[in-house]
Design a protein around this nucleic acid. Structure first.
Length: 527
DNA sequence: TTGCAGTCAATATC
DNA sequence: GATATTGACTGCAA
């Protein structure tokens, strides 16, 4: 009866609970041939082998399947191991274990044609899947992510970095093979992991993959294999291209692009990458300090004055906000782990424990740990310290006189800013520009900052005092959030960037407050 | 429409 | 050559 109902009236995915999704996962797996025969005994007890099939997928990661494609050597298949029935709670447990504990050797796929992310020769062989996943794996990983227990993103990346460096494995290989991401993304991810509870489902995926990879006892071997294979393929291509004096591009199956169709046009269509001059960045940063959320008009003005496209300015603000936020996360984490004195190097887990459902605990509460981080950064020699203040620190090496121009001596291949080539001239003072526009906003911080809730706006159950990370709950953190001067306390010159960040973050909060205040309906405050 | 998360990919830097 | 940085883009949600 349930089956009939489900088949004839399937609910949309988004409406389904996790439990409700299980049958669909099973169906999908079954369709993919992933479920063995008779592995799913009809549930004698109410909760049968829930999730068992999912958890029994020994390799939800691409790596196995990928390597099977491009690494015929790697043995085995993705077929699930024999299973035994399991209760629902056991299933959940098994999921947790899958992610958190070492799992049996990963078998590689036998089916499908997984793409070859790291091996360009057959770029079109897998039209549909951008990730190095076979279809079922993609589904599985998403399910795993959805049901994954909280992971210690910081710890995971730390371990991944260790393993990679210890074994001389590159980010590119790892990213393309294991995560389905490009080198840049991997670098970013490893250097600045977000805490688990701040990640979206999609954002969690790479961490689940990393965790699973870490759990795989053969992970390094497989990657090494991939590396060897790549090298081999590369040598082969190089060899053949040399002997044939052909371009070493992968031979695009049967098509000859090298003739009439010029090989160039695609390149010519590419837009040159905009590279902002240090002075421009500096100006933008100043504007950001004043107003992290500039109005369209301000953006327009900034763009005009800096001789940039408005979209560039918009993008810059988006990127900068987002990256600042992440920097602050990192600082929070660092501070947290410092404060915890090694009790656990699981900051995200920490906050999770403190706030089991603390999604809204500190939306912008990234300030929470900054103060501690501030102290921490001075004494601690951590892996991230080198870059910790990089973003917010204005014009690192070439702290330019702000009136300077983007002179040619900056040595950067500045693409032609489509506009008069006379340059921006003496750079404007965008800060003033931004500040001037909204004095009220800028003045706000000096007022009663956390009065956020004074108007009765629900300080809300979503923000229980216990929901914030430990550092955030310290009174001093609250003070630091809204009491900048004291919090920042001019301890040394390194405080400046932090103060700026804090100020900017505060402005960001204010911006949201203002926005929220202009709404009719009550809202839930998230700070 | 706006802001954000996540990512790519070009470029810079090590 | 590997890694880090960063402008741009996509897709989603409010």
């Amino acid at each position: 009866g349930s089956v009939s109902d489900m088949l004839s009236r399937p609910k949309p995915w988004s409406k389904l609970t996790q439990k409700g999704r299980e049958p669909f996962i099973r169906m999908q797996l079954w369709l993919n041939g992933e479920l063995g025969q008779g592995v799913l005994p009809v549930q004698g007890q109410q909760q049968g082998p829930v999730l068992h099939s999912v958890t029994s997928l020994q390799d939800p990661l691409p790596q196995g399947c990928v390597s099977s494609e491009s690494t015929p050597k790697t043995s085995a298949s993705c077929s699930p191991a024999p299973e035994s029935p399991m209760s629902s709670s056991e299933s959940v447990k098994s999921l947790t274990e899958l992610v958190q504990q070492p799992c049996p050797p990963i078998d590689t796929s036998k089916d499908g044609k997984p793409p070859e992310p790291s091996d360009p020769p057959a770029p079109d062989s897998q039209p549909a899947t951008p990730l190095p996943l076979s279809g079922h794996s993609a589904l599985s990983i998403q399910e795993l992510v959805a049901m994954s227990p909280e992971l210690d993103t910081y710890g995971i990346t730390k371990r991944v970095k260790e393993v990679l460096t210890d074994n001389n494995l590159g980010q590119r290989l790892f990213g393309e093979t294991i995560l389905g991401l490009t080198q840049g993304s991997v670098s970013d991810l490893l250097a600045r992991p977000k805490p688990w509870h701040k990640l979206s489902l999609k954002g969690r995926e790479p961490f689940v993959r990393m965790q699973l990879w870490l759990n795989d006892p053969n992970n390094v071997e497989k990657l090494m294999d991939m590396k060897r294979m790549e090298k081999k393929a590369y040598m082969k291509r190089r060899h053949s291209s040399v002997s044939d004096s052909q371009p070493c591009e992968p031979p695009s199956v049967g098509t000859d692009y090298s003739q009439g169709a010029s090989p160039q046009p695609q390149h010519q269509l590419k837009k040159p990458r905009v590279v902002l001059a240090p002075e421009e960045k500096e100006a933008l940063k100043r504007a950001y300090q004043q107003k992290p959320y500039p109005s369209p008009k301000t953006i327009e003005d900034l763009a005009t004055q800096l001789n940039l496209k408005t979209s560039t300015v918009i993008n810059w603000f988006h990127n900068y906000r987002s990256r600042i936020r992440r920097e602050l996360f990192i600082e929070e984490i660092q501070a947290g782990s410092q404060g915890q004195a090694g009790a656990s190097d699981s900051p995200s887990a920490r906050s999770g424990r403190a706030a089991p459902s603390s999604e809204g605990d500190s939306c912008d509460g990234v300030e929470a740990g900054v103060e501690a981080a501030d102290a921490a950064t001075k004494s601690q020699g951590g892996p991230a310290e080198a870059q910790r203040e990089e973003a917010p620190r204005p014009a690192e090496k070439a702290e330019p006189p702000s009136s300077g121009t983007a002179g040619p001596d900056d040595g950067r291949p500045r693409p032609p800013p489509e506009g008069p080539a006379d340059g921006p001239g003496p750079l404007p003072n965008p800060a003033a520009l931004a500040a001037g526009e909204d004095a009220a906003t800028s003045a706000a911080p000096s007022g009663e900052g956390p009065g956020v809730a004074r108007d009765g706006a629900p300080r809300s159950s979503t923000l229980p005092s216990t929901s914030a990370p430990a550092a955030a709950r310290r009174p001093s953190s609250l003070q630091s959030l809204f009491g900048l001067p004291e919090a920042a306390g001019a301890r040394d010159s390194r405080d400046n960037p932090l103060r700026k960040k804090k100020a900017a973050n505060l402005n960001s909060i204010i911006h949201r407050l203002e926005k929220a205040a202009s709404r009719e309906e009550p809202i839930e405050w998230e700070f």
